[in-house]
Design a protein around this nucleic acid. Structure first.
Lengths: 144, 144
DNA sequence: TTAAAAGTGGGTGGAAGTGGGGAATTTCAC
DNA sequence: GTGAAATTCCCCACTTCCACCCACTTTTAA
């Protein structure tokens, strides 16, 4: 399970070191795609294969579903980690993710998310405003 | 079950010794997360896995719930105790928890809470003011 | 009083993150 | 088809951080 938050940097050659804690579970091949809320998703190859299968079996009748599938699949890049555990971010993904030099890598269950650090801090503050209320609701559900 | 209140210190290397009384029940791996009311939660790995599972099964339809899950998971860190029963507090959690050198570790049923000692004393005084009312409420529920 | 355990602090080797040189490959223009 | 430029991969080097070990002091227990 991926959890936690790590500050890393994309070097001038567009390489990004993934946190060493994640490497065992990630394996040597990952898939990077456009994510939601202006960030990138990183899946271990195994997890991606499951997702791709599910996407393939979704009903293509609705326009929303079609565009979602297009964005996910078209933007996907399978990337191999180099000998030092770094991935090379394709230019179009770097651009779409709004990434500059400083990024934050976030662990979320079965995937990682790559955020521009500034954007991440903004998103986090926004989200924390509502955390208290939501937490109380969750408490009623027995999550805590 | 974790009970009690302990004053400990975070050393210059951001290490924090957990009370030895708790170590047996904690095991060697714990998960530290942002808590409510500006403190940190510490769960034994087993307890955390239950919580994570519940979070994973929550309906992700609502945007508020999604962002809550993001904050909870991103703010979580799985940490291994060193040979002397200490944990290394990540900088971002130390900051989010408003922790300085002196902290108070509180046992609460199935988790610990880490408070900045000053904040804890303030909170405690505040809470004691309300104790009377709360006691009445509890009395109605038949707790006392 | 003595011994053991707990909390705190520090030194150090190795790992992790970062950056850059240079070779191999690809892309593009001409 | 050929040469030039850009890209990507493979090393290597530097710096910072952390896991491991050891030491000291205080508290607890016998």
């Amino acid at each position: 399970m991926f959890i936690g938050e790590y500050s890393h940097t994309i070097d001038p050659k567009k390489r990004l070191a993934l946190p060493s804690k994640f490497r065992g579970e990630l394996g040597s091949k990952v898939v990077v795609t456009r994510g939601l809320d202006n960030c990138l998703f990183v899946y271990p190859m195994k997890v991606w294969e499951e997702i791709a299968t599910k996407l393939g079996t979704l009903p293509v009748g609705e326009a929303g579903t079609r565009s979602f599938i297009r964005v996910m699949l078209a933007g996907a890049a399978d990337i191999e980690l180099d000998s030092q555990g770094r991935i090379l971010i394709p230019e179009y993904l770097k651009k779409d993710g709004g990434l500059s030099k400083d990024v934050t890598i976030v662990g979320l269950f079965n995937r990682l998310e790559i955020w521009d650090s500034k954007e991440w801090n903004i998103y986090k503050k926004q989200a924390e405003k509502n955390t208290g209320e939501i937490a109380e609701e969750l408490g009623k559900l027995g999550v805590y």
